[in-house]
Design a protein around this nucleic acid. Sequence first.
DNA 1: TTTTGTGAACTAGTTCACAGCT
DNA 2: AGCTGTGAACTAGTTCACAAAA
Lengths: 230, 230
Amino acid sequence: MKNTNKAKPAADQVSELTTNRLSVYLRCLNLLDAAGATTVSSQVLAEQFHLNAAQIRKDLACFGEFGVRGVGYYVKDLKRHLRQILGLDRQLHVAVMGAGNLGLALADYPGFRQEGFAITALFDTLSAKVGRRSRGGVPIYDITELGEVIKRDRIDIAVIAVPADSAQHVLNMVVAAGVKAILNFSPETLDVPPGVKLKSVDLTVSLESLSFYLARNEAGDHEEAGDARA
Amino acid sequence: MKNTNKAKPAADQVSELTTNRLSVYLRCLNLLDAAGATTVSSQVLAEQFHLNAAQIRKDLACFGEFGVRGVGYYVKDLKRHLRQILGLDRQLHVAVMGAGNLGLALADYPGFRQEGFAITALFDTLSAKVGRRSRGGVPIYDITELGEVIKRDRIDIAVIAVPADSAQHVLNMVVAAGVKAILNFSPETLDVPPGVKLKSVDLTVSLESLSFYLARNEAGDHEEAGDARA
DNA sequence: TTTTGTGAACTAGTTCACAGCT
DNA sequence: AGCTGTGAACTAGTTCACAAAA
């Protein structure tokens, strides 16, 4: 019954919600480690962000038995395991498509570099931008050089930050160049071939959901906001 | 049983997943309207983005009966309803906290202006930035002017794009100034008082979930990628 | 006939509660 | 005693399938 050191049997079918939380756990462990903690219980971890202790244990249980009963989890140990599970134990190379405001900001975003991602290339079609660099020093290439640069820099992940009307076209290009994982910021429903993972961040949807909340709560403003019932 | 023209009985308890989809529906309807379509069925709408027709009907049913049996939905009509439900029938004022790369990019992001949001203020602590403007013309104020400007510009939504270590502090300030809805881009677990809505976009988590996918699929590369089983 | 609106069935995700290690 | 790992119970979300309306 002991798993023979690799991953657990059911590990193929891990939900996206779980993997997102693993990222969050890792971030918290980095903090705890920096603060000098050697062990942490799921209880304490759960209180930090507003989460349930059983959920944390279940999430981790998908990948092995990392805890020690009566003690909790060894911070450094669990950190290492999470990094390995998330594939952060080697450097991943990232390219950003579109050197507009958003593309340039993402290319220089410190949060990406921090966890071991290397953003090594920006792409654009505007010849005025090609050949220059982002403030942080990421070179801007012409989109026609895509295939070549992606091979050379061994790009693992492409970030799409181009206008909506060219998003699908650009996606097709990076897929053709062999990229298997894409983070999309354009507000479009994009099609990807099987075997390629697409994750979308929709900024407009996020803002509009706040607008929805405000519209609802102004209507029922006489009620105590936040948890009005019936 | 007919709802008396306003919202449906159970409309208070609408899930976030549903409201996010409403945004997406609206975007699609804008496209259809521009393309000259007068009606659309849930079936057709569902095929556009990869979604289920029953789900679209259920989502809409939370707010009323907008469809016509045998016909579908009148595009202009449904569009107007969705705009009203999402609170986009009036202009919402947005302030961006943090005039770094990301804050400046968000302040000028065209997708926000498009659906009727007005980004009217940026805030920062660096005196070198204060008094200047973003490329798109949004003025940068000192954070000490926060309360005053938020009142004057009637800010409805604050976007947090400051470094992680000052995120909670900045959040407290905008809440104290009376803002009831916050879009957070910092990678922190933030606390908000009841009655304030916080929505977080975590860029690092998004990238790391792609990393996880890649790590998994390289391990089992012999298998047909995308839906490998057992 | 076509397509909505919706109860019923199903699937996924979360929380509880406790046996079993340390 | 303390805390993990996990089946069982529960809750939320999705899809099916069909009666009722145009």
